[in-house]
Design a protein around this nucleic acid. Sequence first.
RNA 1: GGCGCGGUACCCAAGUGGUAAGGGAGAGGUCUGCAAAACCUUUAUGCGUCGGUUCGAUUCCGACCCGCGCCUCCA
Length: 494
Amino acid sequence: MPLRLYNSMSSQVDEFRPLSDNEVRMYACGPTVYDYGHIGNFRTFVAVDILRRVLVQSGYKVRHVMNITDVDDKIIRNAARDGVTVQQYTAKYEKTFLEDAAMINIEEPILVRATEHIQEMSEFVRRLVEKGIAYRAEDGSYYFRIAKFPQYGKLSKKDFSGMLDGARVDVDDYDKDSARDFALWKAPKPGEASWETPIGRGRPGWHLECSVMSMEELGESFDLHAGGEDLLFPHHENEIAQSESLTGKPFAHFWFHARFLLVEGEKMSKSLGNYFTLRDLVLKGHKPSSIRYLLASVPYRNQLNFTFDGLKQAAVSVERLRNFRLRLSSGNFPAGANPDMQRLASETTDRMREALNDDLNTAQAQAAIFEMVRQANAAFDTGAIRKDDVAPLLAALAKFDEIFAVLDDDDVPKMKRVLDWARAEGREKDISAALREAVQAGELSDSAIESKIAEMKAARASRDFKTSDRIRAELTDAGILVEITKDGIRWRRK
RNA sequence: GGCGCGGUACCCAAGUGGUAAGGGAGAGGUCUGCAAAACCUUUAUGCGUCGGUUCGAUUCCGACCCGCGCCUCCA
């Protein structure tokens, strides 16, 4: 039951087999670090993270490389606006991007930065010029001549045959030979960041970065290249053109594209007022685990409608799973094993595996785990779960969480970091009451809570429900949920 | 205009040529000193509209309506 993935190159779901036996070499286009990351960015990165985790769970060794684009027009412009160097400017946003990714449990790939590979990029251009594929314009910029790459358009399924005869098209701004020829290297403009290289002074074009860094880290041919759906054309098309015309070998074998999300049914945009960074959502009091769960719950090739209602629903779903785990791990069970539960656990594991192998169908994997939770809870209520059933059920849950990564409750410390950040940035007014409350629940130490619980137990022993209820209410106000069960009193942070 | 994706219950959202996963929300119930948690029952003869193919279509084909994407910086 091998992994099957949609390949944008073949336009169909194909069986995924890496070029070498056990290792998968994948490259993902990362962020341009000019601002805080928004939830659309993170939809894509969560999708790639899930792919990576599925590959690891399948037993592959994964070499996952992601670039940080730390020089481009926007960065240069914003840095100038703020009166800082490009390096100072990008350092801040690279850091915040990585913090945000970690906040929603995205495992960190091997990072490569454009500005650390300038010489290699110039060398790449030089070799393309030598082959007659690239040419230098009068201003010192270099362009790729797409007429030299007849397969141009094979990824995006566009027909450029009309341009392959080298027909000259007049373009106002540049002295390109053809309108479609794209920039490999940009000559410096006054005041812009630029580097001295053997091909002249300037800076790399965006497409060039990814070709150079991916091949350097992964070889001339590698397994999979990922990115947002918008990158399919021209970015990835151009990467293919540059790379394959230079090496004469196939570049990436699989092309993985994540679809854009909608926010409240509309395209996310600043003008519509539905543009949210990850931090905006946490400031509103939403948990990182809710955000990750929602982003992961719709298969990556479908449009995901991101809504605040959905975010609340995601929070409840995560709670339900966490509750189930707590129930299993804290309950008392009679000795022995129940074959039904053993079977339930293994069938669920299989169903999740099948769902994920089917082009990462996360929705079906979730359906499988909830089916197990419901049945196991029902068995729990009738006392049908035995001691030896607990481990396999927890193992199935752990398999689920190896992919979804939402069960461990570290939301509060993460939210506290965002709160501290907002204060440090002078954004006090953006901190919601919900966030303050959530963080407050984390201020009460475990031992302080335990002593309150002990008081409750003592009061209940003498049937002093009034005192017990008062303490419970206090804890509830402090954001601690207290549950009285037949196995004793259980608590957790909301 | 060219190319592509989608329209499934109150909301989110899978899926299939043979009669609709899962989650949330709502209603009723069980349990409970009360809560909480959990479980049970219940909520689409119906899957954008209209035709066609078929023994049979939500699933295939066609037209139309609506939403969205790429074609230019964009995850």
